[in-house]
Write a protein that binds this DNA or RNA. Structure first.
Lengths: 203, 203
DNA sequence: TTGGAAAAATGAACACTGTTCATTTTCTTT
DNA sequence: AAAGAAAATGAACAGTGTTCATTTTTCCAA
């Protein structure tokens, strides 16, 4: 019996080996400019071997997509210690932006990259995404119970809030902040989010 | 003399022929999945011919990038007839979003795609982009003169406003609205923008 | 310990990509 | 019609994702 167990273990180890190499190269060169051959070379295996562990290149992408969502969820943990709903909402925005700025390439992978966005193939991540979104909606509803956002629809509001932080993250990730000459991108995001927080609080 | 003139004319006609074909295929299959050979085949020329009119594939991208910015600027024309600054700001957001939703692929090309974002190569579009941004800032300053956004920095505010509409457009373009199951993406954007407009007005 | 089955890894091959360039075709002028 | 210039060609190169017949390694029973 122990042999099957070892086989299984070695299999997941090999998968992880590929994923680690792939992530490192993706984050360096981008998804499109990373070839299977390069990944294979990095781990000192032949290109064909990769296909024994992943059906296609997209599968590697999806595995990393999943890792990104796990990291995002983890980074949201501090929210559990914030009681006041509006403070919690603002903290959530901050943590989300922090994640994006500090994990630029993971963020790109998760929310910007043009990848096969089909629920069939990536049910786990859709679930994690949905959970995060559900959490956002519930925080917004808590705010409403506390007197904010009277008469607004929580779902529509959640989309607007998400759009704003995503917008900043996306402009940052794809270097569009450069149109603001002589301005530090990080500073723009910082100030922009501060204003948005104030707006939310007064809405 | 007339022959040189015709030569010149034929040259720009050929460029346009290539651009039209390229745009049509880009918008259908996306930049990465459009090959030079496909474009050549569409216009019934050999692949090599393309390279007599464009140094490389990226050059075609940049030409379309420019066309996109021309279209965006054009679609902003109605703003000249809106006097009230806050109405003008809201109208600007609407027109921007309309442009993004109706020209999904142009928008993607202009604001999302990971393309060589270097000012040296694309000075014209950086200029157009800067102008659009300058206009946004000036509208915001007009709002401030009318009593809105007291004590805020116009540039930082412009970044926040841009981020929000861009965020919606980007989530739309890259199919991330799908996490909202049973919701029409266009409806989310519509409601989201309405809320954002209200927030702006009260800020 | 050895034979053979099963699992794992290989790398050549296929059809595709962007790009280059010697060759051929077409046009223009003398 | 001949010579020269401009335009178009398509084969070739080095790269891509992916497949699969072949080889190597691992395993267990005899």
């Amino acid at each position: 019996m122990s042999i099957i167990a070892r086989r299984q273990r070695e299999r997941t180890e090999m998968r992880q080996l590929i994923l680690d190499a792939a992530r490192s190269i993706f984050l360096e060169k981008g998804y499109d400019h990373t070839s299977i051959r390069t990944i294979a070379e990095r781990i000192e295996y032949s290109p064909g071997t990769i296909y024994l562990y992943f059906k296609e290149k997209d599968d590697i992408f999806h595995a990393l997509h999943e890792e990104g969502f796990r990291r995002l969820l983890e980074s949201m943990q501090p929210l559990l210690h914030v009681q006041d709903p509006m403070e919690r909402l603002k903290a959530m925005g901050r943590l989300y932006l922090d994640f994006a700025l500090k994990n630029k390439d993971f963020y790109d992978l998760m929310f910007i990259m043009q990848a096969p966005m089909n629920m069939e193939k990536d049910p786990c991540n859709w679930e994690m995404g949905s959970h995060t979104l559900d959490f956002l909606k519930s925080v917004i509803r808590d705010c409403q119970k506390a007197g904010y956002f009277k008469g607004k629809d929580a779902e529509d509001l959640s989309f607007m809030v998400w759009s704003t932080v995503h917008g900043m993250a996306a402009l940052f990730c794809r270097n569009r902040c450069q149109v603001y000459e002589n301005r530090e991108a990080l500073d723009l995001v910082e100030k922009g989010f501060t204003y948005f927080s104030e707006m939310l609080e007064r809405y």
